[in-house]
């Protein structure tokens, strides 16, 4: 078991820095991952927020999509926020037909499910295992989880207006994903949970 695990942040595009700060705050070491060699060094991988269409495109062009899939199959712990959730999803609806994902999380995710940027919002969520203190969640052109296979644990749902009971945080073994961006709020509980998953795994 590693005391301070080395957690990679997929560094193709997006809010890489914010994830690094959150991970450092909870005692992890971080490294940017842009190549297969860099991926091989890390104990876990965060896929940051960003534009999933672009991230998928760049992962293909940088010859990283197959190594990422292989790492996922081999059981590397991964956490994805927003675009990262899309990248981990086994199925994506409402995406470009050529959008490719890493997979490893047996869910169906709908891209951009809440509307355009004017519909982006923040809200307090209850997250399973986090106690009574609500989690301030920032949703930016966010995806939602339409359905989950057995074996996927739902950590949080969103109750609002037409979208009552929408799944927005899930865990499947060493995979964690959120529709929202904990890296933007200073609340590090999601990152703490992921680092704990990595620690247990190593």
């Amino acid at each position: 078991m590693t005391a301070s695990p080395l957690i990679g942040v997929l560094a193709l595009q997006g809010d890489i820095k914010e994830h690094e700060l959150a991970l450092t705050a909870v005692g992890a070491r971080t490294a940017r991952v842009r190549t297969e060699a860099e991926l091989a060094q890390v104990d876990g991988l965060v896929i940051p927020g960003g534009e999933s269409t672009t991230m998928s495109n760049l992962a293909i062009r940088m010859n990283l999509i197959d190594p990422l899939r292989a790492a996922s199959k081999a059981g590397l712990p991964m956490y994805g926020s927003c675009a990262g959730m899309i990248m981990l999803a086994a199925h994506v609806t409402d995406a470009r037909p050529d959008q490719q994902t890493i997979g490893g999380l047996d869910v169906t995710v709908r891209r951009n499910a809440f509307g355009r940027q004017v519909d982006s919002f923040e809200i307090d969520l209850d997250i399973s295992g986090f106690g009574p203190e609500p989690f301030r969640a920032v949703f930016i052109r966010a995806p939602l989880v339409e359905s989950v296979d057995s074996g996927v644990e739902v950590l949080s749902t969103l109750q609002r207006g037409g979208a009552a009971g929408t799944i927005v945080a899930v865990r499947q073994g060493v995979r964690l994903a959120t529709s929202f961006h904990p890296e933007l709020t200073g609340d590090t509980r999601i990152h703490e949970l992921f680092v704990e998953i990595v620690r247990q795994h190593s």
């Binding site: 982006s120 307090d124 609500p134 609002r160």
Partner: peptide, 25 residues
């Protein structure tokens, strides 16, 4: 149960959108 009141157009939501574009063209 947390108080689930969605707020749009906050500074965090607006600035955060730009964060998602970082490193891009």
């Amino acid at each position: 149960m947390a108080d689930q009141e969605a707020v749009t157009g906050t500074s965090r939501v607006k600035r955060g959108m730009a964060d998602m574009l970082k490193g891009g063209v």
